[in-house]
Amino acid sequence: MKSLEPDALPKDWVKSRHHRNFPAAITELVTKTLAITELEVRKLRHDPTDLFVRSVQPALWLLIFGQVFTRTRAIPTGHLHYLDFMAPGILAQSVLFVAIFSGGMALIWERDLGVIHKFLASPTPRVAMVLGKSLACGVRCLSQVFIVYLLVFLLGVKLNLHPVAILQVVLIVLLGAATFCTFSLTIGCLVKTRERMTGIGQLLTMPLFFASNAIYPISLMPDWLKLISHLNPLTYEVDALRGTMLADSTSIYSFGLDCTVLLLTLTGLTLICGKLYPRVAM
């Protein structure tokens, strides 16, 4: 310790954030967000078993639900086979489940351990802690892209494998995962116990999934449900995925609008969660 030199830290290091200029504040936000993301990704690298466990759910939906409904032709999906129609919905669903259960649950676990207190006592912007975790959740969900692509390819779904389309899918999955992870973190800031968080997680995922265009078109819904599904960010995630992932399908709302809705929702939730985050250590 003796040999640590006093100039080991930048000169303006002690300055309050208020005294740092805007570019420096943005640089700080980005570097610290990436530090938190790196931490989460390193954890995942040490124990990747969760990624494989998470592949069971989309497999069951595609192999059982998908196969049955393709045969019955109960849901009108235009020129698309039902399995093609539901494939992007199942990718969005598995991202939703991973995000909801890894966000708030992990936060409560870390709070109970005491890990979170040390982060909050460090000069890390609260928003960077939230964004770092949600971005890491996006990285975690990229494994779901690989698994779902592999499954649906084997089931004969016609995929758009153009590199730009794949990059668009990656972007949407990152945005969707980050949005729902931040939503889950926000609830995690308010809920006191893991048991309650599990209950609330289950309570939220099902309505979000069913009040969306994931497994049936919105045109089939009654008006009140149509309204809810238009307010549901999952609808825009599925719409963007349907337009980019499949070879012969287009998005209804346009890729740009879908991205904008997800980005605005993520920004709003991040700001709310950043405000609530310090409550975790109180």
Partner: peptide, 24 residues
């Protein structure tokens, strides 16, 4: 309470905080 992350190595625990504390 325990604040070191058990799912990371000792080095990684230090690395993350070195970045958060802006050590060049």
């Amino acid at each position: 309470a325990l604040s070191a992350d058990g799912t990371l190595t000792g080095y990684e625990n230090l690395l993350v905080f070195a970045k958060l504390y802006e050590i060049p």
